[in-house]
Amino acid sequence: MAVMSYLEAIRETLRQEMRHDERIIIYGEDVGVRGGVFRVTEGLQKEFGEDRVIDSPLAEAAIVGTAIGAAVNGLRPVPEIQFADFIFPAINQIVQEAARIRYRSNGAFGVPLVIRAPFGGGVHGALYHSQSVEAFFAHVPGLKVVIPSTPYDAKGLLAAAIQDEDPVLYFEHKAAYRSIKGEVPDERYLIPIGKADLKRTGKDVSIITYGLMVNYALKAAETLEKEGISVEILDLRSIRPLDVEMILETAKRTGKVLIVHEDNLTGGIGGEVSALIAEHALFHLDAPIMRLAGPDVPAMPYSPPLEHAFMVTSDKITEAARKLAKF
């Protein structure tokens, strides 16, 4: 067992799985010689060679399109989109092809593809290097969308995504890469996709969130505990499929739900979680379901004060949860 950063956990999982399964290839902009702009794939080309760790042209539609073809023909491609912001040229391949091939072929073909992409703001990335894009894909049947919050989950979920027979989008928060550290077992393990994780039990308020925000929510919970407010935290881990059972369980337990995400409010996954609770747990609710999310503005600003104002922070979560607890 070693303490690893979130980024190291991803790299070591790629290495471990590639050693185990020759069908796995990595494909993307600067992932080979340079080891990726964030160094996630550093050293992998050296170990596995240019045939398995491939520097691609600057063309996201081609990256995903060829990966789909490779996947259908028996490989396990794990392409990287350098920034989630750049995924949109590939959206036709992802939504129209990858997501639908199993359905269209009546189950004859699957697309065992994992698209990794760093996302999220708070790193002075401004408009084109800060976006949260998960809600676009969570809308699409046929896709799975995974967003780990810890190094441990990053490993188990990435391994599960690679072994999945269908396409998985695996989003990694840039601010988590080096700031979040934790113990990661050496041996291989899987975390099933679609299972949420109860990070903390409490009785006053449930915070339902995912990714980096889980860490901020945990900090908020500690602050609130000193005030006598007991907070439960559910880490969704995957936003498609959602773990409906655990969402409803925590909502029923506390009767007060705060949903948190950095992605902007309108059309975000918070709306879906909120609807599930309203549909199935109405008579357990003791307060209106509350959402805390990025504002509905076109993009992350570059100006540091404005970027800070955009970001969901631990303080903002604390304040929202406190208000809900006191309702």
Binding site: G255, L282, F283, H284, L285, D286, A287
Partner: peptide, 12 residues
């Protein structure tokens, strides 16, 4: 003032 307004959980 929220006296007299009950949440679904309270009613149940």
């Amino acid at each position: 003032d929220l006296r007299g307004r009950y949440s679904p959980a309270v009613r149940r």
